[in-house]
Structure formats: C-alpha cells, structure tokens
Design a protein around this nucleic acid. Sequence first.
DNA 1: CCAAAATTGGACAAGCGAGTCCAGTACCTG
DNA 2: CAGGTACTGGACTCGCTTGTCCAATTTTGG
Lengths: 149, 149
Amino acid sequence: MLSQTVEYALRAVVHLASQAPQGCTTDEIAEATLVPRAYLSKVLQSLRRSGLVNSQRGIGGGMTLTKTPQELTILEVVNAVEPVQRIRTCPLGLATHGVRLCPLHKRLDNALAMVEEAFASSTLADVLNEPTLSKPLCEFPSTMAPHRG
Amino acid sequence: MLSQTVEYALRAVVHLASQAPQGCTTDEIAEATLVPRAYLSKVLQSLRRSGLVNSQRGIGGGMTLTKTPQELTILEVVNAVEPVQRIRTCPLGLATHGVRLCPLHKRLDNALAMVEEAFASSTLADVLNEPTLSKPLCEFPSTMAPHRG
DNA sequence: CCAAAATTGGACAAGCGAGTCCAGTACCTG
DNA sequence: CAGGTACTGGACTCGCTTGTCCAATTTTGG
C-alpha cells in the first residue's frame, strides 16, 4: 500500500538524519540503505525539488537535510514523493454530495486520516531516538554506527 | 494510496449488498457504481475467485454475495483484490533483524495495522445502516433507492 | 587549467495497473 | 433446438512506476 519510492525516500532521509550534518553522497546513501543508486538519485532529486534536502555538486558535495530531524516528519517525506490523497469529495463525482461523503467513503477517508495523523506525529528524531536495540536502517546495534569515510 | 481496483470492488460489493438477495448483473452494477463495464467484469471475476461472490450465467443470472452484509467486512473485499501488505520482516532483508522491525518500519507497519483494523471492523451492513442522509453510493437520499428493472 | 568528484537530466526498457474489445461458453425461455 | 442473455477469458493498448545508463554540468583541489 506504500509505494517503493516512498520506502526509498524514507530510508534515504532517515539515513541522512542519522549522519553528521555535513551530509552524505548519493552513493553513500545507496550503499547504506540498499536502494539502487541510479533510482535513488531520482528520488533524491524529487526530495530536493520539494525542498526537503539540499544538494551540492563536486568534491565534498552531497545531500543534506534542510531541516533538523526534530522538525521533519514522516508525513512530509511521504508527501514529497507521493502525497497522501485524502478523499475530499465523492469519487463517483455525484453532485448530490459535494463534500458530504457517503458512509463507504467516509470510512475509507477515516483510514487515510489515521495514516496521515500517524505519519504527521512521527518526526525523524522520534524514529532515531526510539529506545530499541535495532538502529533504524538495521544492520548494526545502536552503539556501532558506521561513520562517514 | 488505495488503488482504483479496490475502490471499484468496494463500490460493487456495497451495491450488491444494498440490493435484494437475487443479485445484479454486471451491467446493472456498472451503471449504478459508475465503473467501466468491461473492467468491472474483471474485478468481479477476481471477487468470484476469492469466493466473495457467486456468478450465474444466462438469463436471470448475475452476481450475488456469498455472505450476508453482516458477515462481510471491508477488509475481506480489499484483501480479495489487493491484499493489505503488512511489513513483517525488514524490507532491507537484513538478517540481523528477522522479525524485529526497526523503528522506521515499525511505524509504517503500525499505520498499516490501523488501516487493517479499521477495515476489519466495518461490515457492509455497518456501511449500509449508518444513520446518514447519503446512501452509500450517493445519487439518492436514503428513501428513494432505485430498484432492479 | 585540468582532472576527479558529484549531482543533473534525458533517453530508454521492463513490468504492472487500468481499461477496451471480442470471441467463447453456459444458461434460460420459448 | 434456437436465440437471447450474461459471464468468462484472452489479446491488446496506454500510461505510470521502477530501474538503468550515459552525457552534461558544477564544484573542488592540485
């Protein structure tokens, strides 16, 4: 139900947030998150166009977050690459309803609202600081994070 | 976030549930739900293969639900055409985790779980009997349901 | 200035979702 | 049995998602 691109974008952003603020190159992110390099660069471009990351070319360049992990929510990342489409008007286009959804679509939209709310209330900092044995992108226990080469 | 096919399947099933138990033809459902006829027939075939509807060819034939609206949940319909894919193991395939999800994927899966739960706890009867002015598939106020021709 | 590092953008391909069309098959009625 | 009704299944199209590859561009460092 969540697209592959959303998954990739979240991995990339979580990895960026877990690194020092100087940022990472696309290759570094790709290696750490196991996302295909060439496709990841497309996803990152999309995040850049949405203003979630800055990019810097050339030696020493790479990607950086434009916000702190405390300020960036999962929802913002999801919406940057594939916006959560709430159901605001009757999908059958029946004028009788306008904004009043029928019971079916009200329930569907409620589910979407719950997802939206859950995503909006999780910041990247929440994800990174959650007390757990497993670091966000797995691989290593929380104490042995790899550092930038 | 919900596919068009899921939307169509739900419309079809809700319409079937709102009709007399003798069922409807594909054409009738298509007309009532504003779903393209030829595609709807594919969706209905899929519902039949999942055992949610029975089909009958020939004059007087059509589609019928195999359960009462009280027994049929939104989740069953959704799962028949596009199963809710919970995240059960680390999508990065990292063996370190096995079933333990990292904080990121735990949150994503939580959202999916909420949706699953919301869908599982809504039966078609719930949808049809909800006290509201708008009938499920819109078009008419609750008292002037069109009947089978 | 040159070369290496890094992002950017476009072209391309495979696969899937959505949708159409049509021939085939089963069923009922007369 | 004939003919109309209705579902079934396959072939096909179109566009989007995922993914690859490469040439162009920007930036830094020697």
